[in-house]
Write a protein that binds this DNA or RNA. Structure first.
Lengths: 327, 327
DNA sequence: GGCAGTCATGACAACGTTGTCCACTGCCGG
DNA sequence: CCGGCAGTGGACAACGTTGTCATGACTGCC
């Protein structure tokens, strides 16, 4: 900046005035300054600016499980969109379900003085965020609630979703329904299992633990689980899958078989409608989650001091065929 | 920091020494300082630190087309991974193919003093980056080359890919092959078209402009284009699709028809193998692109001053069925 | 001509941190 | 008893900006 000032023959403060569009600079002077800026390729240092002004850094942080997963990248996209409208950039990091990594990323973002943070919790302990939150940094948790702090949270109706799935399958005559879910330390997994159980009760079906297999799941473990529930003395005639990845594994395993059980998957996914049979899913909108969470975050940044909110977004069953099979 | 110093009864410099693990602090003193830090929830301001040290900001910027697109989110994930190994955070932004937005994002990242930048070009003019590059900021372009600057670039073998696709279809007896590509101002689109043409020549097939439709494409325009090439006096018996989104649109359009042409799609996508018929694709690895680009960037940051490189990653044809149909 | 009132500009401090350099305390050997 | 040395701690400047306030040159008016 002082280089620019020297070249334009003005003081550094005048350059500052020009780059900040402050009034009170003679047009001819401004012209000279702009020319100098252009010639030197000067770009003001936002870090220094933020330091001096004590103002926001213009960034928000986002910790999620895996940007590579279409579900989370959909969320990311929506968050980016809302952030743009509010003039903020987004720092992202993937935790890979590792609580330490989540913590590391979140604290790193704090040190960078993000204006706010969106977190898809990997672990159950979030006490480490309390000092920041007390210092005024808003945090919104997405997809899963925080372990041990009260904070804004955006969830989908996990329980309602699996209740719907079971009801749907039961209404098509299934009474032996299996559930393949994610690892039980993941909030959404246990909620969906709970909904599954509740759905069984409401539909008057016996809840059979032998038909439940909780992850972590890869293709092989899904194959094993499927073999088990289908090879049972009283085999399952339908399966509810706990998330999009498990559904995909399941589809790949089922591709080789002829005795395909009915299937309802939690989470919608691209091309589900073009498979044979098309896959019935519990759909919810990833971008809606991102949008709701980001908007909640920005309302906090705009001074909304109301008590922490818990937003639960609705899910809907999209019947496509795979769940309408009769046993 | 001065609060911490006051609470611990030391000078602010001593606190600095403690947080930086500098030698020359009495263990008992360090203990007191750490306790004070913990009690106050102090987190050092990385912005100020970087300003003072004139060191790297520990961030890299990444401008891409749309994080929500699985192809780019795969790249993002790989970039994140490599960046983590090099101790950097990643700022991302989606340009939506808008050159102005790309420029805006890139300059914003520059103002934040990112250590380096990865750019999927939306436009053809990148002169605006020259000052930064001259000032030592490495930039690597991905998926498409920069318009008017010489710089590191990571591409896939677009031409080779469509040549392969045409050869494959021709070897199954097709001689009337259509090409549905993206907008011609997108580098990959014209390259793939060029490969298509070249493939026709090599296979001894007549290249017929009436069978080519360049986008931008949505589902409706794909349907129109398909109707045109199939309704031709000499209808196409096979289609090459120019990218994953066009392929998906095409699949949705084709779902209703019985006279399905053979199909080879550029870009692999999840579940392509589970469709009926399974979709033959020109596959390349999104994460390999991200990894290669990020590693190139970090090698520049580590001082590699060799001339700009152009890395072209191989593609391969994955035969699955949709391309093996006979006319 | 003098005086208030504008306008354009600049000097200086401060943001939170760290590097440099100096000062103090003991303690040792001569 | 003193000089020097090792081990500590602190004062101060600087990073690149911007907010505050002061300065100086003009203008218009009595």
């Amino acid at each position: 900046m002082s280089d620019v000032a020297r070249l334009a023959g003005v003081s550094i403060k005048t350059v500052s005035r020009v780059v900040n569009d402050e009034p009170g600079v003679h047009p001819a002077t401004a012209e000279r300054v702009l020319a100098a800026i252009d010639q030197l390729g000067f770009r003001r240092n936002l870090g220094a600016r933020n330091l001096r002004r004590g103002s926001s850094t213009g960034t928000i942080g986002m910790v999620l499980e895996d940007v590579g997963n279409p579900f989370y990248s959909g969320i990311t996209r929506a968050v980016e969109e809302v952030s743009r409208q509010h003039g903020r950039q987004v720092l992202t990091g993937s935790s890979d379900e590792d609580p330490n990594r989540e913590r590391e990323l979140a604290l790193e973002f704090c040190a960078r003085r993000v204006d706010g943070m969106l977190v898809v919790p990997a672990g159950m302990q979030h006490g480490y965020l309390v000092p920041e939150m007390r210092a005024g940094m808003p945090v919104v948790f997405l997809d899963r609630p925080a372990g041990d702090v009260v904070a804004d949270t955006v969830l989908v109706d996990n329980i309602g979703g699996t209740v719907l799935a079971v009801r749907h399958l039961a209404s098509h005559g299934h009474s032996r329904i299996a559930f393949l879910g994610d690892a039980p330390d993941i909030f959404t997994a246990t909620e969906r299992l709970r909904g599954f159980r509740e759905g069984c009760v409401r539909a008057g079906i016996r809840y059979d633990e032998e038909l439940v297999s909780m992850g972590p799941h890869d293709e092989r473990s899904v194959a094993d689980a499927l073999r088990r529930v289908l090879g049972n003395r009283q085999p399952a005639t339908a399966v509810v899958s706990g998330n999009n990845r498990i559904t995909v594994h399941l589809l790949r395993v089922l591709a080789g078989r002829t005795d395909r059980p009915a299937l309802v998957g939690f989470d919608d996914f691209e091309l589900a409608d073009l498979l044979n049979p098309p896959i019935t899913v519990i759909a919810h909108d990833a971008s809606a989650i991102g949008k709701a969470a980001a908007e909640l975050l920005f309302s906090r940044l705009d001074g909304d001091g109301s008590p922490p909110r818990r937003v639960v977004l609705p899910v809907r069953l999209v019947p496509r065929g795979s769940g309408e099979v009769r046993p």
